[in-house]
Design a protein around this nucleic acid. Structure first.
Lengths: 205, 205
DNA sequence: GCCGCGCTACCGAGTGATCGGTAGGTGATG
DNA sequence: CATCACCTACCGATCACTCGGTAGCGCGGC
């Protein structure tokens, strides 16, 4: 579910130490997972001591929270940026996935963190639970607007929405493991083709 | 020691220590992830010392490897169980997902471990990479056998296979976070309906 | 029958490394 | 003189893993 989370934010030069740390932390979380990551590793990446990082963020949990908050704040801009002025469509999302293929680190960070969040008492659980809920609603609206209320096979937009998010997540998972075997953008477009297939409704109507 | 005898009397199925450890490890890995899990936690769950566990499995990596092997065996059992003697179909997979809903711990273990495997140098990376590759081929065959070579929207079975696996994984992710909001089996069947939208339902039976 | 011998199944104690986090300081800037 | 930025030093906990045992069991020899 890497929708808001595009990489363009990260390529920008960090303005201050705080932000520098947040960017490094996102990288490290993506490489080792939240549990496996250490504050010291983040510190090393920005040329600080571990306590230097703790000066800006009082705990590892808070650091994670701020990393996620940063993506939330900035990510919405990116979608607006992706199709300047127009409405978001399924093709916009498709374009985002195209772009994601070149930002493996970011994809991995969010895939890892969201998957890890299902662990017992994980500090990011609420974040991702809310995020999925919002995304499902948003996607259902988007699908209905584009495909109408009736999808092939009698599927509803409310059903298609979690399926679409699942496809995004699942494809990222497979792509991260075998980038050469899995054509993530092509497969996502194939899924869109399933949604948009013109199939005569089974019975009357 | 009398304790051993007592233990085997109390447990319904007197399994050996190795297997006991593997089952406990699967649980612990599912709850804390591989990185976050400790050998000591596994040991405590089976009433051994940490060194007792290391007596059976020389390292944490090896323990993980054996756990995954066990899970694969069990998974095959479930498939065989789901349709005794017959060929595996998409509905068989659907039945497995029904069954999985009542086995949250197992689903979580496997979801967490597979997601974690995309981390750099993760010991389960090869396992899951191979497993996905095999599953994609197997699923493509299965879809072709059931839906023919042409799916709605011009999608091929080779495209539908990774999509189906992605849907399974992604739905598990959402379901684990919000079990009450996500009807995993129903949504999976909705995806199957998308795949079968233009094929007439099989006659007979 | 019982005695030693090797084998399995563990455990207690400890290794060095690393973890997240605290306490208290220093030096530069204002 | 105060505040910020960041440090050294340290803490207790925990990590995977090693070492060196010991207790019980089966087995062969006498």
């Amino acid at each position: 579910m890497l929708l808001y989370n595009l990489g363009s934010i990260l390529s920008a030069m960090p303005r201050n130490r705080r932000e520098e740390i947040l960017l490094a932390a996102l990288d490290v979380f993506g490489e080792r997972g939240y549990t496996g990551a250490s504050i010291a590793a983040v510190a090393e990446r920005v040329g600080l001591s571990q306590q230097g990082v703790l000066h800006y963020f009082p705990s590892k949990d808070r650091l994670l929270a701020e990393v996620l908050r940063l993506r939330d704040e900035r990510g919405l801009d990116v979608i607006a940026l992706g199709n300047s002025g127009g409405t978001v469509t399924l093709d916009t999302i498709s374009a985002i996935i195209d772009y994601n293929r070149e930002r493996r680190g970011i994809v991995q960070s969010f895939t890892v963190l969201s998957a890890e969040s299902v662990l017992d008492d994980h500090p990011a659980a609420d974040f991702f639970r809310d995020r999925y809920r919002e995304s499902r609603e948003w996607m259902a609206d988007l699908i209905r607007a584009e495909c109408g209320p009736d999808l092939p096979g009698g599927v509803t937009p409310e059903q298609a929405a979690p399926l679409l998010l699942a496809v995004m997540d699942g494809l990222q998972q497979q792509w991260l493991l075998s980038p050469d075997d899995v054509d993530m953008p092509g497969l996502f477009r194939a899924f869109l083709a399933l949604l948009r297939a013109n199939v005569p409704p089974p019975a009357g109507d």
